[in-house]
């Protein structure tokens, strides 16, 4: 296989691996820009993946699966909101709790309902899974050198959720930076007191941000279980929620940067999967474990302020106490 074909294959799997990260990182973006830290992305994604796969298997429809994925994810997001907005609890603690509740519940319910060792039934029926969409002329231009494979392999042939994820990036940018809701949402993450003074409810605004976060995590989970794979397997998120969190920080809480950070982390993952160990000029070998941990290492380096400074929303993590 030529270098070019290999590159196309790697980029193709980069896209596939980056999609759940993009949904989850954008989910975190809404929440954290409103001042609610969310380390429960992983748990929400996992619960959504389970709910999506279970519903898609039972009702035979990928769309119903997506619907239930979003419902469950939003429900968990509301638990996080209830604890951290209404009861002013510690947001980190609440997020940790949600991760554990999701991890345990998906396995217990999966085993009780389907009895396949925590798996949901494989989604084989027509329409029970989001399948690849062939874009027009993909077949026809496949033989055109250079651009042909890029179009037919890389751009065409993904499921609808992949295109939605890419559309969600400019949409999020538009919502956050060009609408009144977005302005207020960002304001409540920086200075909730000012928002309150303007007569806008901090609580309601933050709840809406948390719900947006739930919806997008629902998409992330549905993508994993109903599009990328044909069903749920236990612990299938395998830390993707935390990589998404890393990507969000790496992107300095900006939507377009989120896209780039997720593609970078997806690329690292794709390379690590493709090459067991990469040999650099025959001098030394880079172990695949190093490639896998590179997103985390990069995030730590970034957080340390050695490559630019990641400044979180100012009021992030602090419950808002209305003055009397």
């Amino acid at each position: 296989m030529g270098t070019f074909e290999t590159l196309i294959l790697i980029l193709d799997s980069t896209v596939r691996l980056a999609i759940p990260l993009m949904f989850a990182a954008l989910a975190g973006l809404y929440s954290e820009r409103a001042g609610i830290f969310d380390i429960g992305l992983e748990g929400k994604m996992l619960a959504a993946a389970f709910a999506g796969a279970a519903a898609a298997a039972v009702y035979g429809s990928a769309w119903i699966g997506l619907f239930f994925a979003i419902i469950i994810s939003v429900a968990l997001a509301l638990v996080h909101g209830f604890a951290s907005i209404t009861h002013r609890g510690n947001q980190i603690v609440s997020g940790v709790a949600i991760n554990f509740i999701a991890a345990g519940t998906t396995i217990i319910l999966g085993q009780a309902w389907f009895r396949q060792g925590g798996r949901t039934p494989a989604l084989s029926a027509e329409g029970s899974r989001f399948t690849a969409i062939e874009l027009p002329f993909a077949e026809a231009v496949a033989d055109v050198p250079l651009l042909g494979p890029i179009y037919s392999e890389l751009i065409s042939g993904h499921s609808i959720l992949v295109y939605l994820a890419f559309a969600a990036v400019p949409f999020t940018w538009w919502v956050l930076f060009r609408t009144r809701f977005g302005l207020r949402l960002r304001a409540v993450g920086e200075n909730p007191g000012a928002v309150d003074t303007a007569g806008i409810s901090v609580t309601w605004l933050r709840y809406r941000a948390v719900i947006c976060c739930g919806i997008l995590c629902g998409f992330a989970g549905a993508y994993l279980a109903v599009a990328q794979n044909a069903g749920f397997v236990k612990d299938m998120t395998a830390g993707k929620g935390f990589i998404a969190l890393a990507a969000l920080i790496f992107a300095k809480w900006k939507p377009v940067n989120v896209l780039l950070a997720c593609l970078l982390f997806g690329f690292l993952d794709a390379v690590a999967i493709r090459f067991a160990g990469i040999n650099f000029f025959g001098l030394f070998e880079v172990p695949p474990q190093f490639m896998q941990s590179l997103p985390y290492i990069l995030t730590v380096v970034l957080l340390a302020g050695f490559i630019g400074k990641a400044i979180p929303p100012k009021a992030g993590g602090q419950p808002y106490v209305k003055e009397r």
Partner: peptide, 19 residues
């Protein structure tokens, strides 16, 4: 894995919702 749920619930109720 039931323990993982209980663990999560304890963290939620004794931690985040302690008040």
């Amino acid at each position: 894995d039931m323990i993982v749920i209980i663990q999560g619930l304890v963290i939620l109720f004794a931690g985040a919702l302690e008040h």
